[in-house]
Each structure stands twice: as structure tokens, then as C-alpha cells.
Amino acid sequence: MANAKVKKRRINSISVPAEIICHIVLILFCLLCIVPFVFVVIISFTSQDSIRAIGYSFFPKTTSFEAYNYVMKLGDQLWRSYFNSFFITVAGTFFTMLVTILYSYGLYRKDFKFRKFFTFWAFFTMLFGGGLAPTYVVCKTVLGLSDSYWAVIIPMLLNPFNIIVMRTFFQSSIPEELIDAAAIDGAGEYTTLFKIIIPISKPGIATVGLLSALAYWNEWFIPMLYIREAKFYPLQYLLMQMQTKVDFLVKNSSMIGAEASNIVSDLPSDSLRMALVVLIVVPIACAYPFFQRYIVSGLTIGSVKG
């Protein structure tokens, strides 16, 4: 079997020159993508004196850990926030995927009576929204969201974009006969979905899962609105707070007076900005291959026949 696969691959693959061209194009693009990140890492280890003297540079005059030391001063809060972010991302992605799959499966089924209505129900919200203040009021007063993990997860639970993308994945990878076959075998709707459809839709699910995990991990605005207790701060918000504080003080120092310039002068502001990026990106970049396993190699549709 393994042998056959290798053979097949060799027969049906692109020519060597074409592959070389692909590699060159992709390598160039990847360099473009990774060099800025390397740059960020370098700046995060650059001393503030060096930045003041020669600006942002790939070759700093002196290196230092001052930005990281500054972040480490957060102490336990930092680790607590790492945990919060991790928890929110995992739990949030789980619930998001559950509800998204259920919803988009309904939209995928052509024989679902209310399919059109529910498609429009989701899609319409992609275009029209009430704006920030009304949403805030509903979440706060109607749903009572504040100071809990739910207060971050619920407002971002669904995204019509993901639902529609998920539906499209179902459309392009699941033959309708499969559902008919399952129905004839007497499988219930839920059994069909969980036992048959989900296992063969892994690439799509992994992709949407990745996108929503990223969204949860990167979110700082919603925690800012609904969370006031530091023990629930996710990482991104904790770090964003540092960042916005610095930006605000630098911008408004003339209004706030001596105190502001006092705080600013103590901050390794430029390298700090970059160190924060590093602290946020590294964990999620490490988690990335986990999702990717399903996306790139994927499970082939072989199970249709089996």
C-alpha cells in the first residue's frame, strides 16, 4: 500500500523544472514574510540607547534584555495571563467549532427546509451591525457578561465568514450520495454528522479551527470592554495595555504633565513593543503545526468508498 502511494506520487507529479520554479517563488515570498519577524526579534533585544542612537537596525550597537526584564516585572500576572489566553483559546475554539459545524452543516443540507432562511440569517449579520455601543449594552445588561471567561468567549463565538467557509468546504468535499446512503442505513442526523461527515472534513475543520483559534488568541479589544478584573486578563490584553499606555503617554505628555514624561523615560518603549510581539507570536506559532497536519496532508476522501 505504502509502495503504491509512492509510485502514484511519482507518476502524477509536476516536472522537476516546474517544481524548482515553485520553490524559488515560494522561498522568496517566505523570506519576505519571515524577515520582518526576525527584525522584530532583533529589535526586541536591542538596547534603548542603541535605538536612540542609530534607530531601528538589523545590526544594533548594543543588545539588552531590558524589554523582557520589564515584562517579567509583571510576575505572576504574566503566567496567569498566559494560562487565561490558553484556556480561552482552547475552550473558545471548541465551542466555536461545535456551533459552527452544526450551523454550517444545516446550511449545507440542500434538503433542509429552512436552509435559505438560516443562510440569510447568518449572512446578513456579516454586512449589518448595530455598532459598538449597542452591542456593548446588550452584552453588559441583557446577557450580563463581565469578568469571566465567558465574557470573552461568547461575544466572539460565531463568525458568519467561518460558517460560510465551512459550508463551502462541506459542499466541495462531501458528495450528497454519502448522506443518502447514511439515511438509507438508518443513521440519525446527528450520527451522520459526527460519525461520517466530520471525520472526512478534517482539512476544512482544521482550517476554520485554526482561524478561530488565532482570533481568540489575538483578541484584546473584547477583554478590554468586558473584563476589569486582572485575574481574567488574557495575555494579548495585558500586553496591549502596556503598549497603549506607552503610546498614550508619549502622545499626550504635554497635557498630562511631568508625571507622564517621568513614566515614559523609564520605559524601554521601542524594544518593549517588539518584545510583546515575540511573546504573543511564539506560543501560537508553536501550535500552528498541530492544525497544519490536517490541512496539508489531509485525509483523502477514500473513506467515501469504504
Binding site: 456551533v99 440569517w121 447568518a122 449579520t125 449589518f128 451591525g129 448595530g130 455598532g131 455601543a133 449597542p134 452591542t135 449594552v137 446588550v138 452584552c139 441583557v142 446577557l143 461568547i154 461575544p155 463565538l157 460565531l158
Partner: peptide, 12 residues
């Protein structure tokens, strides 16, 4: 979810 988080605020 859409009703509470998206449609209700649309009153705004």
C-alpha cells in the same frame, strides 16, 4: 446567538 449578539444590537 445571532439573535442576541447581532440582531438585538441592530436596533442601534
Amino acid at each position: 446567538w445571532f439573535f442576541f449578539l447581532r440582531y438585538l444590537p441592530m436596533a442601534g
